[in-house]
Amino acid sequence: MDPYLIPALDGVAYGLLLFVVAAGLVLSFGVAGILNLAHGTLYAIGAYVAAWLADGGWAAVPLALVAGVAGATAAGTALAGLLTPVKRGDHLTQALLTFGLALAGGSLLVSAFGPEDLPVRVPAALDRPIDLAGHSYAAYRLVFIVVAAVIAVGLYLALTRTRAGMLVRAAVDDPQMVACLGVNPTRVRVGVLAVSGALAGLAGVLGAPIIGPGPSTAATVLLLSLVVVVLGGLNSVVGTLVAALAVGEIQTLGVALLPTAAPFLLYAAMALILAARARGLLRRWSTA
């Protein structure tokens, strides 16, 4: 077990990072019925802002968090505006529009920040390995696990204990009924995409030392979070969390256990799980 301790722990860190990004994506898909292929670009905005502002001091951390989240939230809101003429559930037009925005947005980010992958400087106290049961592990990632777990719990409480959260869950189950309750669907869409952008931006700032900003960041993050969201059942935050942790562990613990199968693991697991579920061999996650 000992050589697998650090990979297993790292799988949690990686999985939680994927969860925070994918939570935004599952909200926009489950609640607003929007397939947002520009979601990875929202993460990239947060990550670039972190690289731009972070200077290795503590003061820069809240600054980068505020600026990164604000930037991605604004971009998410703008996205909601751009998507107004496209009907809910019209996933292929949404795909065309958001993929186009992702291509153009990624290109603009590269013109603004340059073609190099950028360094992200974290405070010196966190930028070092620490000793963990005889193994070394990056201090930043350990702290990240705690912070991301707090975010996950907060998100769960917000969805289950607040009025807005209950509305969100109701909207997943029955969008027509929520519309009948007198809730303006446009406001729901704008609100959901803003929150979705905020989560992606938050993940981008916090995750920049793990998946750093560069020309391929948006595509990497988008693909992984799509995998997580679909594995999680497309409309469930709890399902997304479980899927994110599973994907994290497949990519760390799975790779450590089966190094020769590493290139096939993720997609083979995904194809088999999704196909089995489509045939009714596995039950779907309930909405929560």
Binding site: P7, Y14, I210, T220, A256, P259, P263, L266
Partner: peptide, 13 residues
């Protein structure tokens, strides 16, 4: 695809 080298470092160790 590899973004995370931790499992490989465990093997090297």
């Amino acid at each position: 695809a590899t973004k995370n080298f931790t499992p490989y470092f465990a093997q090297i160790k």
